[in-house]
Design a binder for these strands. Structure first.
Length: 515
RNA sequence: GUCCCGGUCGUCUAGUCCGGCCCAGGACCCCAGAUUUUCAUUCUGGUAACACGGGUUCGAAUCCCGUCCGGGAUACCA
């Protein structure tokens, strides 16, 4: 037969947030669809009415969009195979159920929940090797059914599984696997109220939506067997299956939203994880780009992705590598982009600075790009730019280390007061930062600037320190402490350049005076 | 219990299909060193793995069997 256009789907139930596992499943389906030149659709499996919520739905859609996983068909994008919400497809399930009832593939079951529960208890208590529905209503005669109906009992519809039949499936991940239907029971397809259960709705929709490949978590492997039989019963061709291994927590069990350190996709967004880093990291959970590369773009992933290349073993989620990945991306951004991206987390930065001191802000951010892994880490590191900082413990130590340092600070304050340092925030820095891009690297060409550049500040400083007759290092530490209130941060001459004359002089004098 | 799947450095993995190029490569983490005014970045180096036992073979991480360990499934959830 002619190969149909590949069509893959991600089919979440809106009963919670999009977590790492779901995101990866969506991503692999998406990447496979793109790689195969097919379509990626989103179907919402909202048949669990008790747990489905609108908020969850929105969260899942937002999470997917944030990661850059877009869908060709689904909510908000009609592709002619909708509706894409299962609760809007009830008549389709009803019709399929009628057919299966007529063909004998399905039968009504009048067993009560109580009886079913008792049955399970009994099977467990007896340490039965087999647990499941006993087929009580499987062979009900027509008159018995009529009798039950007369008494007002409402039936579930069950699928009649073939007895002891070996079903052979080819799974893209697992290869050939045989399962005996003996292991499976007659499962419920449809509730009395017409709401379908997972396996049934899934198959009816996969047929209706022309799905060709199903990529999902391995917890669905046995469902795949049930579904294959249903496809056959409905006279439809079964899609190709790929059951991918689970993502594991630190203990090696299925990753749960309740595991410590594990968050929903949107929480990563809110904490300033770059989406492409999260995407990149998640892709690596069970799949490798190549033997020697871990960092790649979405496009590169699509070009390289093959479902069969996904591993068989579960992967543990490692927050440390995710953080590294985030830093890796942040460092690569141009400062302007970093500033824009970090804007939502820069609430403590005076709003005016974004318009009047844009370039200065970019320079400031640039000085920290190699020092952060999450965008949320930026704001706390920028405080000293706007207000004279109170020295932290390390800074106090550096200030107190050498009693003579107060004289140096005072002396350098006066030297700087007489120098051509750029103006301090919020004074107008008139094109200074446009001309001098930070962080300054010693091999970079010296830019033309009306004010002292980091390179000149350093040269002057070294000469000054030499005249003073002290070790450069001993001089620099208290200065940094006085200027930034801490012992870490960008190169000191970037700091002085960014801070400008007034602020530097003021802080050095204050520190010299022991304030 | 039963069925299914898995098991290469602490972690993610390459290599496994078509045995030799692997006394096992890359990345994260960790450690040491270099650069440096701190931190960070960068660079260099290091520690560290084929779960175990048999078998097949001239030769096995790669093939076969068993054991152990781990995970998943066994719903009127998805």
């Amino acid at each position: 037969m002619i190969h149909p256009t590949p069509r893959l789907r991600f089919a979440p139930s809106p009963t919670g947030s999009l977590h790492i596992g779901g995101a990866r499943t969506a991503m692999y389906n998406w990447a496979a669809a793109r790689a195969l030149g097919g379509a990626f659709l989103l179907r919402i499996e909202d048949t669990d009415q008790a747990r489905s919520t609108e908020a969850s739905l929105q969260g899942i859609l937002d999470g997917l969009r944030w990661l850059g996983i877009d869908w060709d068909e689904g909510p908000g994008r009609d592709g002619g195979h909708g509706p894409y919400f299962q609760m809007q497809r009830l008549d389709l399930y009803r019709a399929a159920a009628e057919r299966l009832l007529a063909s004998g593939h399905a039968y009504p079951c009048y067993c009560t929940t109580d009886r079913l529960e008792a049955l399970r208890e009994q099977q467990k208590a007896a340490k039965s090797s087999w647990i499941g529905y006993d087929g009580h209503c499987r062979t009900l005669a027509a008159e018995q059914r009529a009798e039950h109906e007369r008494r007002g009992l409402r039936a579930n519809l069950r699928f009649r599984m073939p007895e002891a039949q070996v079903v052979r499936v080819h799974d893209l991940i697992r290869g050939e696997v045989e399962v005996n239907t003996r292991e499976l029971d007659d499962w419920v397809m449809l509730r009395p109220d017409g709401v379908p259960l997972y396996n049934f709705a899934c198959v009816v929709d996969d047929i209706g939506m022309r799905i060709t490949h199903v990529v999902r978590g391995e917890e669905h492997f046995l469902n795949g067997i049930k579904q294959r039989l249903l496809f056959e019963a409905l006279g439809a061709e079964c899609p190709v299956y790929a059951h991918i291994p689970l993502i594991l927590n630190q203990q090696g069990a299925k990753l749960s939203k309740r595991d410590p350190g594990v968050m929903g996709v949107l929480e990563y967004r809110d904490q300033g994880y770059p989406p492409e880093a999260v995407f990149n990291y998640i892709a690596l959970l069970g799949w490798g780009f190549s033997g020697d590369r871990d960092v790649f773009t979405r496009e590169e992933m699509v070009a390289a992705f093959r479902i069969e290349a996904v591993g068989k073993a579960g992967a543990k989620f490692d927050p440390a590598k995710l953080h590294w990945m985030c830093g890796e991306y942040i460092r690569r951004w141009p400062p302007a982009e970093c500033l824009d991206r970090a804007r939502p987390w820069l609430g403590t930065v005076p709003a005016a600075a974004f318009t009047t001191h844009r370039a200065w802000l970019e320079n400031s951010v640039a000085c920290f790009q190699e020092r952060i892994q999450l965008l949320a880490e930026l704001a706390p590191k920028l405080g000293w730019l706007f207000a004279d900082p109170a020295p932290d413990e390390a800074a106090r130590r550096n200030l107190a280390k050498d009693p003579a340092s107060r004289q140096w600070l005072a002396a350098w304050a006066e030297a700087l007061a007489a120098s051509d340092l750029p103006p301090s925030w919020p004074q107008d820095r008139a094109g200074v930062d446009e001309r001098v891009r930070l962080p300054w690297r010693k091999d970079a060409p010296e830019p033309a600037c009306a004010f002292a550049t980091p390179a000149r500040i350093e040269a002057d400083c070294r000469a000054f320190v030499e005249r003073l007759g002290v070790k450069f290092g001993s001089f620099v530490h208290p200065v940094r402490a006085a200027l930034t209130g801490t012992d870490k941060g960008p190169g000191l001459f970037d700091v002085v350049f960014l801070l400008g004359k007034d602020a530097c002089v003021r802080r050095l004098r204050a520190a010299a005076a022991g304030v």
